[in-house]
């Protein structure tokens, strides 16, 4: 049980709740979503409450996060994309903090469940679709027809473009989900090796050094992945939003 690498993804009900026939219990996943939001909101609100002209450390972190996301968004979607800044910023911080929470032993990783990442990805694609059609009308479909392509080629390219657009939410959600899932499983498996080998006596203890080193290295890698996946999610969101704003590329 202790070395079962899948067990960490188990959802347990902390507060059973049922509304209109749906099981909407407050689970460990919900708890960590609340913790993610509470921690990041509290940090961002309190660190900036002083409104220091010269920022302290905490305020610097908040400002850096702000400028980091603002730069990504402005570079990929232009100044008009800045109206989606709260969305991209929220997505980035939420995913980053949820990923980092998952790095604590015994903590639940919210983003290791496909339904969460899929919901976030569909939110992004939904906004891209709605805003794209609202802003450009039927001209949004130009997104699927690259400019200056002869009609014969367009017959081949348009289906490819449509397919690539449809696969966006899929890739966006699966990338994050799979990274978190695989990383945590790998970590758990190597850590499990350490436990198992140590239980085999002195020789096992020597043998356990290798998976231990792996575990340490993987932990560092997972911290990188936790940041990187949040970054990738944010930057892809920016690029998709750019398509909604400027559909003819």
């Amino acid at each position: 049980m202790a070395t079962d690498p899948i067990h960490q993804f188990q959802i347990t009900k902390l507060l059973p709740l049922e509304v209109a026939g749906f099981d909407v219990s407050f689970t460990n996943s919900a708890l960590f979503m609340v913790a993610t939001v509470a921690l990041s909101s509290a940090f961002l609100i309190f660190s900036t409450s002083g409104r220091g002209l010269i920022p302290g450390r905490a305020q610097s972190i908040s400002e850096m996060a702000y400028e980091f996301i603002a730069n990504i968004l402005r570079q990929s979607a232009g100044s008009e994309g800045m109206k989606f800044f709260p969305l991209v910023f929220s997505l980035f911080v939420f995913i980053l903090i949820a990923n980092l929470f998952g790095m604590f032993p015994y903590f639940f990783t919210v983003t290791s469940h496909i339904i969460i990442t899929a919901a976030l990805a569909l939110l992004v694609i939904g906004i891209v679709l709605i805003y794209g059609f609202w802003r450009n009308g039927i001209g949004f479909l130009k997104l699927f027809v690259p400019g200056g392509v002869p009609p014969i080629l367009a017959a081949i390219i348009v289906p490819i473009e449509v397919l690539s657009f449809i696969s966006r939410p899929l890739s966006l959600s699966v990338r994050l989900f799979a990274n978190m899932l695989a990383g945590h499983i790998t970590l758990k498996v190597f850590a499990g090796f350490v436990v198992t080998l140590t239980g085999m006596g002195f020789g096992g203890m020597l043998g356990a050094l290798l998976p231990l080193a792996f575990t340490v290295a993987l932990t560092a890698l997972e911290f990188l992945v936790a940041f990187l996946q949040a970054y990738v999610f944010a930057i892809l969101t920016c690029m998709y939003l750019n398509d909604a704003i400027h559909p003819s590329h």
């Binding site: 899948i6 407050f26 689970t27 919900a30 609340v34 909101s41 929220s90 469940h113």
Partner: peptide, 26 residues
């Protein structure tokens, strides 16, 4: 667990609540 659809409703609801609140605060 990640493919256990019986937890989807709860996860979606709590994601909507927490992320919605987070978005609002941001």
């Amino acid at each position: 667990p990640p493919f256990d659809s019986s937890t989807f409703a709860s996860q979606l609801l709590w994601l909507a609540i927490t992320f919605g609140l987070f978005y609002y605060l941001m």
